[in-house]
């Protein structure tokens, strides 16, 4: 090896070994959860639990999906899907429109509007939960999808992202469209929107995960179990007091809860990475 940058032989194997160890450590909690979701409750409560899957896969998942503990998990999955999709689509839609207005028009209050939405970048929902809760309660939106969705789309990250992207679209395209006779909204639909496809998709991936993984907000405003989302619903499945938790069903639910966002990340890895880099920088 002697100072060479490229690794060969033993060094290469050590590198792989280190990485594989890392992967195993990262995977271990998931593996254990998977095993727990395929065995019976008695096998778990009599430690140590087995480290290889059992034969109860279908029974546990069916029980979780159909009956759950308080609510069928299928219902919670549907709630999560509505919330995550609502947040992703809602935020993308309002952000596209306002970014278009900010970049391509000069209108009274433009600068003020820009700074107002800039402020929203600084405050996560966790900081203003109590008053937000009161607003939602006053609108009668507790235990409702709008109540789950609206407070979480009240932030301007996506607006900034689209603004940045629109700024990179050559001026000449808008001019060519004007010469071609396109009015503003026609330009938006025919040119700007199709050109933003990749950005929209990347942002969609990030927002979907963000929405799906919300915990505190649904915990506050969904007191009705039939409106629980899956991520916050898991905690509700633990019994209060000294009763033993139904671990196989809880673990099956946990895996179901992580499956959609994990699939999104793996299947749309390129878009996911791009979205991550876009939104965080």
């Amino acid at each position: 090896m002697s100072g060479m940058v490229e690794k060969r032989g033993v060094g290469l194997w050590l590198t792989h070994a280190g990485l594989i160890l890392g992967v195993l450590v990262i995977f271990f909690p998931i593996w254990l959860a998977f095993v727990a979701s395929t065995v019976t409750q008695p096998e778990i409560v009599r430690p140590p639990m087995p480290l290889l899957p059992g034969d109860q896969f279908f029974e546990n998942y069916r029980e979780a999906l159909v009956s759950g503990v308080n609510t069928p998990v299928a219902r919670m999955l549907a709630n999560s899907a509505v919330m995550a999709l609502g947040i992703a689509f809602g935020k993308i839609a309002i952000s596209l429109l306002s970014a278009f207005a900010i970049v391509y028009f000069r209108f009274p209050g433009r600068q003020l509007f820009f700074w107002l939405i800039f402020l929203t970048l600084m405050l996560p929902v966790e900081v203003r939960i109590v008053p937000t809760y009161e607003v939602v309660a006053r609108f009668g939106m507790l235990n409702s999808y709008p109540g789950l969705i609206f407070p979480l789309i009240a932030s301007a990250t996506a607006t900034f992202l689209f603004r940045q992207f629109f700024m990179t679209v050559p001026d000449e395209l808008a001019e060519a469209a004007r010469v071609d006779g396109a009015r503003p909204m026609r330009f938006f639909w025919d040119i700007l929107l199709p050109m933003s496809r990749t950005n929209i998709a990347a942002l969609f991936v990030i927002l979907f995960i963000y929405g799906w993984n919300q915990y505190l907000w649904p915990l506050l405003i969904t007191t009705d179990p039939s409106m629980n989302t899956i991520v916050m619903g898991i905690k509700q499945m633990f019994p209060s007091g000294d009763d033993v938790a139904d671990w196989p069903v809880i673990m099956a639910t946990s895996l179901l809860a992580m499956l959609p966002p994990v699939l999104v990340v793996i299947l749309m890895q390129k878009l996911f990475i791009r979205g991550l880099v876009d939104t965080e920088k």
């Binding site: 990262i26 995960i209 799906w212 993984n213 915990y215 991520v231 898991i234 905690k235 992580m258 994990v262």
Partner: peptide, 8 residues
């Protein structure tokens, strides 16, 4: 694992 919710 980025996609796994902190609560999960």
């Amino acid at each position: 694992p980025y996609a796994v919710a902190p609560a999960v």
